[in-house]
């Protein structure tokens, strides 16, 4: 079966006021891939995600989701999103894990539709998948950072999407839980054939789990399989990154130990 391109970026550029933060990005992400989008701080990774999700509009270029222009795209139930924990919600919000995950079903439901028994089963089943079922009745604010991110994965998963986009989801998660979090993502990628696009600055961990890597600094300098990325020599890397080479290659070597 031919792989369907889920995200297509064609000469995408974007600026805030006068600063170009994304320049001429071309990239295609196919069904079944687990793509790590890496790059230094301020390289436009998060902005690129916002563009893909339609939260910002590109100044130039085209973005297509599932073959359709983002502007006209309406199958949002196919797309899940997990953001950085720190700025995604008010941790004093009075809601249970169950209620938060259930809110992920909104994209699948009609305007006046009420929640029913099938929705309940779906939520519990998804919580089981991320191993958080026993916390269903707990308040979201009382969980640890790693547990909260599992809940947000469940919220993204509950509408049975084909694609999940994650923006540095491990920021604020204890390092010991980060690996388990990546393992969960890799499992979902394998078992559900779920396409994942994950922004990260932790190159070491992402290359050991992702199938593909895209390196970005305003524009995408490299996009290919993880093996190709790891076989690249330092010279090519330095051409891609310029000044930020040192820190990145350091992490890169660290990961292969």
């Amino acid at each position: 079966m031919a792989q369907e391109p889920l995200i297509e970026l064609e000469d995408v550029s974007f600026k805030y006021d006068r600063n170009w933060v994304v320049e001429n990005v071309n990239m295609t992400i196919n069904e079944g891939q687990f793509v790590g989008l890496v790059g230094p701080n301020g390289s436009g990774k998060s902005t690129l995600i916002k563009l893909m999700l339609g939260l910002e509009k590109p100044v130039r270029g085209h973005i297509r989701l599932f073959g359709k222009e983002v502007k006209k795209f309406n199958r949002w139930q196919e797309v899940g999103f997990v953001s950085q924990k720190a700025n995604s919600f008010n941790s004093g919000f009075p809601a249970t894990v169950y209620e938060v995950v259930r809110s992920g079903l909104v994209s699948r439901m009609n305007m006046f539709q009420l929640f029913n028994h099938n929705h309940k089963n779906k939520v519990l089943e998804t919580l089981r998948e991320v191993e958080m079922e026993e916390y269903a009745r707990h308040s979201i604010g009382e969980l640890s950072g790693g547990q909260q991110q599992r809940v947000f994965i469940a919220r993204a998963l509950v509408s049975d999407p084909s694609l999940i986009i994650l923006d540095e989801p491990t920021v604020g998660v204890d390092s010991e839980h980060v690996t388990a979090f990546y393992d969960l993502l890799a499992k979902l990628n394998r078992e559900r054939n779920l396409t994942l696009l994950m922004v990260s600055h932790d190159i070491g961990t992402i290359t050991s789990h992702a199938t593909h890597v895209a390196c970005m600094n305003k524009t995408v300098h490299f996009h290919g399989s993880t093996e190709d990325y790891e076989n690249m020599d330092d010279e090519t890397l330095s051409l891609m990154y310029g000044h930020s080479l040192q820190q990145l290659t350091h992490n890169h070597e660290g990961s292969s130990l």
Binding site: L53, G54, L55, N74, W76, V79, F81, S83, S88, F89, N90, F93, A95, V100, S103, G104, V106, S107, R155
Partner: peptide, 11 residues
């Protein structure tokens, strides 16, 4: 109320 970004992505 919980997450405005998510609301907008959820359509």
């Amino acid at each position: 109320s919980f997450d405005e970004d998510h609301a907008s992505i959820a359509g």
